[in-house]
Amino acid sequence: SISSRVKSKRIQLGLNQAELAQKVGTTQQSIEQLENGKTKRPRFLPELASALGVSVDWLLN
């Protein structure tokens, strides 16, 4: 799922939720909701993929 991929990649990069949120241009709460499965397809998906160094396709599939 996107939530597990985001969380595992974030941890692999040594980032906390607030640091990832800053790179993406969103809030820590938005990252938390995404990782908890409350958000399925965030509006900041391209920025998120870029910050994590992955493709949008990788996040979604």
Rank of each mutant, 00 (worst) to 15 (best):
L34E: 01
G53C: 07
R41G: 08
V56L: 13
E35L: 03
T27R: 06
Q29Y: 15
P46D: 11
E32P: 01
F44R: 06
N36S: 14
I31F: 02
S8R: 10
F44D: 04
V54R: 02
Q33R: 14
S55T: 15
Q29A: 12
S3Y: 05
S8F: 15
G37D: 07
E19L: 05
V24R: 00
N16E: 09
S4E: 15
R41D: 10
V6L: 08
A49E: 00
L48N: 00
Q17L: 11
K23A: 11
Q28K: 13
L15R: 03
E32C: 09
S1W: 11
Q29R: 14
I31Q: 01
L45M: 08
A49W: 01
K9L: 15
A21C: 03
Q22S: 11
S4P: 03
A51V: 13
D57S: 13
K9E: 03
L48D: 00
K38A: 13
P42A: 09
E47K: 11
L59A: 00
V56C: 09
S4A: 14
G14K: 07
Q17R: 15
K23V: 10
G37H: 06
E19I: 05
Q17T: 15
S30N: 13
R41P: 08
A18L: 13
Q33Y: 11
G53K: 07
N61A: 12
V6A: 08
S30A: 15
P42H: 09
A21D: 01
V54A: 04
Q33T: 08
E35M: 03
P42K: 04
S30E: 15
K7Q: 09
A18Q: 12
I11A: 08
L52H: 00
L45N: 01
E19D: 12
Q22K: 13
T39K: 09
N61L: 09
L52I: 04
L15T: 02
S55L: 06
Q33M: 14
A49N: 00
T27P: 06
Q22N: 10
P46I: 13
L13E: 04
Q22M: 12
F44E: 04
K38S: 13
E19Y: 04
G25H: 07
N16A: 09
L59W: 02
A21W: 01
L59Y: 02
E32N: 10
L45I: 10
Q28V: 15
R10E: 00
